[in-house]
Amino acid sequence: MSSDHQEVSNDSVLDDLAPGLDRSLHRQYIRGIFVLWFIMTVLGVLAGLYLTPILMPHMNSPEGRAAVKTVIVFTVAAAPVAALVCAVALYSLLHTRHRGSLDHPPADGPPLRGNALASGVWLITSTLLVVFLLFWGLTEWSAQQVVHADSLTINVIGQQWIWDYNLPAQTVRLPGGRELKIPKELALSKLNLPVDVPVTFNVTSKDVTHGFWPVNLGIQVDANPGQRTVIRTVPDRLGKFVVRCSQLCGLNHAYMYTQAQVVPDQDFQAWVQGGARGPILAVASSQNGSTK
């Protein structure tokens, strides 16, 4: 959209927006606000596109990357609206500010009591934006509801103030005909996940409500006493990260975390076969994912 186009399209409504104002002043105001709006929109869009990936950690699952992508898209979508509010405010500070003595009120502004066109455009635009946000959110959300026929089941038990993982005996068929075998039930204190294998977390708590939050997987669900809640993901990138508790759970809430990592599935298989003793083959730490 160019500034010329803006003027032409607005000429007919300028009299409504500012009656009794000479037309060249209209143009000056609209142009000034448009320039500010344009600059700030561009800044907002650039911030959304380039700042977000720097601010957020590398994610180890599609759900995590969906969260990053959502932040980017919503920032870009919101930038023009936020920029307009800021542009009008800034313009009124820079240009129409009363510059005389501040002891006495300036002359009254024009008695504009509203403008059907401006309100209508604003209303329609914000409604369309909301429809878009909703569409985006529901699309992403439904994409995350896919249940893989075969997945690695991990029981997660929260209690004050540790996470315990229970790996039931199971056989998971992997794409490509291979199989992941857990020969006997394993009780673990750290979370290790094979890469590219769908995982189902069955989460519960022994005492109070905790929040099971494997940070870089971009999913979380509360661990409720007496309830089993389920979340699923497919970790698809190798790396270390931390499982934290996202729900205040008492005294040592801050210390309720465990190390986790996504490892190649052969390594995982070998480790499980060996009774899950000792550290699993260390992999490169993902950015922001390590602790201590």
Partner: peptide, 9 residues
Amino acid sequence: LWRGSNWVR
């Protein structure tokens, strides 16, 4: 704010 005589107190 638009077109107001912005009295910045």
